[in-house]
Design a protein around this nucleic acid. Structure first.
Length: 241
DNA sequence: GGCCAAGGATAAATTAGCTA
DNA sequence: TAGCTAATTTATCCTTGGCC
């Protein structure tokens, strides 16, 4: 099952260059950027690949988040709200520390990330696919590439992205990885952290050869480009036969 | 800092559905 | 009917947060 993913190193480099513009060293750790627009990055990646990619992303491709003020979440790890940064309450103003611009931008980045992930999760949850429906060739190739070459343990945010890109229910994507780990435990993983601070276990190849610091944006670039390539390959195969 | 409970993540086992 | 895959259930381990 390696025939189709051999060019992934190239694909990852394209994505890496997109996420980390050439002005800075590719994939080198840098201050957290504002989440890039997936639609924009789709176009920039496409132009780098010299492929006939439509100027506008397909409608299932992720849209930039609408930055609404966050509501107080019930989740324990989302204690910050937009009001924490921009307009501290009068009672807190006395004790509020003066944050450095870097710190403020990091807080803002985390807020945007949470809002974006929430939006993506809602989007993924709207995907309906038949219960017990087997993965099709296209979905299987993308899932297997991620499993074999990136990670056996994708964090929730990555599974959400995968679900949206391959148009399969989030729960089914989650189940697929669970079942795949039962069937195929080969290969080792390296524990690391994403740019967003998530603890992940990545394939050594993904970490050492492609990009030393993965992020949601980088993962999204990789699977979108690979997804497109798989679609093109499958279309060629069907035309030949 | 140590203890403990709660919740999450994961593996293992199991069931259900489909197909040759 | 056997084999495969998707989905569910259960048990275990680990992390996190609260309390002292």
């Amino acid at each position: 099952m390696t025939s189709v993913h051999s060019p992934l190193h190239f694909l990852a480099q394209v994505a890496c260059d997109t996420v980390h513009p050439p002005t800075s060293p590719p994939c080198s750790p840098s201050p957290p950027p504002a989440p890039s627009s997936p639609a924009d990055s789709w176009q920039s990646s496409a132009s780098s690949m010299d492929l006939h990619i439509p100027c506008t992303a397909p409608d299932h491709i992720l849209q930039p988040p609408q930055m609404q003020p966050l509501r107080h979440s019930t989740s324990s790890n989302s204690s910050h709200t937009s009001s924490d940064v921009s307009s501290p309450s009068p009672t807190r103003r006395k004790t509020a520390k003066r944050h450095s611009p870097d710190h403020l931008s990091q807080i803002k980045f985390k807020q945007q990330m949470r809002a974006r992930r929430q939006m993506l999760m809602e989007r993924a949850m709207r995907i309906k696919s038949l219960d017990n429906s087997p993965v099709n060739d296209h979905q299987l190739l993308v899932l297997r590439m991620v499993y074999d070459q990136i990670t056996m343990y994708p964090p929730e945010s990555w599974m959400v992205l995968l679900a949206i890109v391959i148009r399969r229910a989030f729960k089914q994507v989650k189940n697929w990885f669970s079942n795949e780990r039962q069937k195929n435990k080969e290969g080792r993983s390296i524990r690391t952290q994403t740019k967003e601070g998530d603890k992940v276990r990545l394939r050594p190849m993904a970490l050492q050869q492609w990009c030393p610091e993965w992020s949601d944006a980088f993962f999204e670039e990789v699977i979108m480009i690979y997804d497109y390539k798989v679609l093109m390959d499958l279309r060629l195969v069907s035309n030949d036969s």
